[in-house]
Simulated assay, not measured.
Amino acid sequence: MLPTTSVNSLDQGNGSLKSREAARHTAGAKRYKYLRRLLHFRHMDFEFALWQMLYLFTSPQKVYRNFHYRKQTKDQWARDDPAFLVLLSIWLCGSSIGFSFVLGLQFVEMVKLLLWVVFIDCVGVGLLLATLMWFISNKYLIKHPSRDYDVEWGYAFDVHLNAFYPLLVILHFIQLFFVHYIIMSESFIGYFVGNTFWLIAIGYYIYVTFLGYSALPFLKNTVILLYPFALLALIYVVSLAMGWNFTKMLCNFYTYRVG
């Protein structure tokens, strides 16, 4: 007789052996499909990605509600369409070019800044933060630690990208219109306006990150992800008292590292 496998033993709910083996088997295939779609722009849903970018500012809860729908329909929390990443890269390039003009950088320096912002500030830092949050959430925030539930690394990286986008627009686009005439001045209003932009941008990052992990029904105590707000507020008050200008420090750092 041919060897058989008990259907009941493989299909015992969400944590069944079959589902776990299927997840392991398809993880690489899903990753390969995602990377392959980067080469096929016609297959990307840029309209939906633009919708997500808009609602990350106005109602980020709706964006994470869509992640729930993806889990129900495609059995994964992470994005399977790289359109959002492509549009974010375009935003990075455009805003970095704008920052280069504000700083008066030459063409070669502008290219260096562009490469640094894309591959270090966004991708490099993003990989580190996503990995850190993936480890922390799986290690300490799972309600009932088991193999049945885990935070996908791809989802952790998506949460970073979601949180990074508003920060990018605030600091690398909106702020540019105030740099020369207000922020770079030596007056109190200069570093007040600049540091307030930083407060709003980083606050957005913390809040959108919190929403991303609180949207996962198998995580607990996600409110601790809001605790950095207290430290952020303290640094903001101290910076105003000490006269620190974070935007001026960033501009000096950009100029130094591409010089």
Rank of each mutant, 00 (worst) to 15 (best):
M133T: 04
Y149A: 11
F84C: 12
F135M: 13
R65P: 02
V111Y: 07
S137V: 03
D81N: 11
V125E: 09
D81R: 05
D81V: 10
D75T: 10
T131M: 09
F84G: 02
F99S: 11
L87W: 00
L161I: 12
D81F: 01
W153R: 01
L105S: 13
G98A: 14
A156C: 06
L105G: 07
H68I: 03
S95P: 04
Y149T: 14
L92Y: 06
V118Y: 04
C93Q: 14
G98M: 10
L87Q: 08
T131D: 06
R79H: 05
R65H: 04
Y155F: 15
W134D: 05
G154D: 06
L85T: 14
L128P: 00
G104V: 06
V102Y: 01
L161Q: 14
W134K: 02
R79N: 05
R147E: 04
G104P: 02
K139E: 07
P145V: 15
L105P: 07
S96H: 03
L105H: 08
W116S: 08
L85G: 05
D158G: 12
I136E: 07
P82G: 12
L105V: 13
R70L: 12
Q76D: 07
V63L: 05
V111Q: 02
A130P: 00
P82A: 15
K112Q: 08
D80A: 05
T73V: 12
M133F: 12
L113P: 03
G124M: 02
V102T: 09
I120Q: 01
F67E: 10
N162R: 02
V111K: 04
P145H: 15
D121E: 08
L88W: 09
Y140K: 05
K74A: 09
L161Y: 01
A83E: 00
V125Y: 02
R70Y: 01
R70G: 01
F67T: 09
G98F: 09
A156Q: 00
L103Q: 01
Q106S: 15
P145M: 13
S100G: 06
I136P: 11
F67D: 14
V125G: 10
H160I: 08
V159I: 10
P145S: 14
T131H: 02
L105A: 06
E152K: 02
I136F: 13
C122H: 12
V151Y: 03
S137N: 07
I90S: 10
I136C: 13
F107Y: 13
V102A: 15
K143Q: 10
M133I: 06
W77A: 11
R79Y: 02
L88N: 13
L92R: 03
N162M: 07
G104N: 03
D150M: 10
V108Q: 08
Q72G: 03
H160A: 11
Q76M: 10
V108E: 06
L88A: 14
F67V: 12
K74T: 05
D80R: 04
V111P: 10
K143N: 05
W77S: 11
K139Q: 03
V118K: 09
Q76R: 10
H68D: 07
Y140T: 03
D148I: 15
D75L: 15
W116A: 09
N66I: 07
